[in-house]
């Protein structure tokens, strides 16, 4: 491809940017899940409880 400025082989490539992006995604998932499960869901009304408990 014409726009390639340099060849980067397998052993010299560390996907730092990928790790950073996906780390942010991980944090976002933890925060959103915690909010949705523990606040939106368990904090809601008329939660269905078992008759035995």
């Amino acid at each position: 491809m014409s726009s390639i400025e340099r060849e980067i082989g397998h052993d010299e490539y560390d996907p730092v940017g990928t790790l950073a992006l996906i780390g942010l995604y991980f944090l976002l998932l933890v925060v959103l899940w915690t909010f949705t499960y523990f606040v939106e869901f368990l904090g809601g009304d008329l939660t269905v409880v078992g008759t035995l408990l």
Partner: peptide
């Protein structure tokens, strides 16, 4: 990290079932 996430999700659902007593 992905495995941790999966275990965390299953653990919260289990908490909801046993701790918070949400029955299916």
């Amino acid at each position: 990290a992905a495995m941790v996430l999966i275990v965390f999700f299953i653990a919260s659902v289990t908490y909801g079932a046993i701790g918070a007593g949400v029955a299916m």
